[in-house]
Write a protein that binds this DNA or RNA. Structure first.
Lengths: 201, 201
DNA sequence: CAACATAAATTTACATCGTAAACAATCATC
DNA sequence: GATGATTGTTTACGATGTAAATTTATGTTG
């Protein structure tokens, strides 16, 4: 049933496809999902998705970009709560952990070394930049509040590294069975606060 | 040219295959390597590898186990240098970074979320345990030397998380272009030393 | 030593995947 | 209403992982 498509229709189909892909990824794992399945989930014939995306990589990139956007939105929402900068940082950290544990497949898609399809796909690039920006904003707030001093971007990346490392080890099942991830996160938090000389209000 | 194979021959072939796989992985990336290529690299017909490994996953697991073993050996060698515990920790951290940057494909294979083929393959499990053990030994040494107090395993996992997080972000190209990875590592080290109250000699 | 059994390796074959190319069906425009 | 473009489908192809059949070479036995 072909019709003339407005660009809104195109966007709508793309969005539906991304959503279906995300759902299937979460259910069956990323590489278990095939183009044919995806088309079937949308009720179209196997080749139809190719009218809206160049290839599978392009779909992956779009789903990744959407995941980064959702991720950034969560962090921004957590930091929007009124509180002193240190507490807002804690909230953001909690939101980070919540996201990764609630949507491990999305987190994996975002941070796996699977494909270096980064450079292409400017939409994806933008989503990453936005998410990364969030990582340093809260540090700048603490610095401005006099709770901390130093290079905000560098310190932001340190927070990020600690969170990312703990979560990746947890998600990949690399933590020792005796390790309680929550305790590890508490220790990490306390250690960073002390180590960076953050003034606790 | 079939012959009766001793179990040493079998092991030798497996080792050759793993080595070839590792080389090809490093060259062309992991998922770009095909069973047929692998067989060709060994000068055998495409199906021969299946006489020595159940399937491709089994080969992946064997290469992963070998990578973990090499990794653990490097860390252990770095810590075997005579020095006070804190310096041995630093050496181990440097060895960790060196390994990941020198063999990014191996590091990726070890820590990607690609397949949860962990549970099967006891050989792999053992290699991981050995590598993980290394991560806490140096902390125990510092505690015994009175340079630090706390839960050695938990603190070991904190060190591990920070290193792993920084390296993964670097290897996946997620660090901001303005970030110097070496500076980030320096900040991380200083922050952990201060935050954990490590007594510097 | 000749015939055979068995283990090793190869060849053939197949299902599945991503996707290119050919085709069909619908609508906008003249 | 004929025509050309746009959307969707069908068909087809090469590549991949691997199962099954087949060949080849060795060690064993009468």
């Amino acid at each position: 049933m072909p019709r003339v498509l407005s660009s809104e229709d195109v966007e709508a189909f793309r969005a539906r496809l991304c959503e279906a892909a995300q759902t299937l990824f979460a259910e069956r794992g990323i590489e278990a999902v095939t183009m044919r399945e995806l088309a079937q989930a949308l009720g179209v014939s196997p080749m139809t998705p190719y009218r809206y995306f160049k290839d599978k990589d392009a779909i992956l990139a779009a789903v990744r970009a959407a995941a980064f956007a959702r991720f950034a939105a969560r962090l921004e929402a957590a930091m929007a709560q009124p509180a002193d900068p240190l507490h807002r940082s804690r909230n953001a950290g909690q939101a980070y952990v919540d996201f990764a544990l609630a949507e491990p497949q999305a987190y994996r898609l975002m941070f796996d070394l699977s494909q270096p399809t980064e450079g292409d796909y400017p939409e994806l690039q933008g989503a990453i930049v936005r998410a990364r920006r969030t990582m340093t904003v809260h540090v700048e707030a603490m610095i401005q509040a006099g709770q901390l001093e130093g290079d905000a971007e560098l310190i932001g990346h340190l927070f990020w590294s600690v969170l990312h490392g703990m979560l990746m080890l947890q998600l990949t099942g690399k933590l020792a069975p005796t390790i309680d991830p929550a305790k590890l996160r508490t220790l990490a938090s306390q250690t960073l606060v002390r180590g960076l000389g953050i003034v606790t209000p």
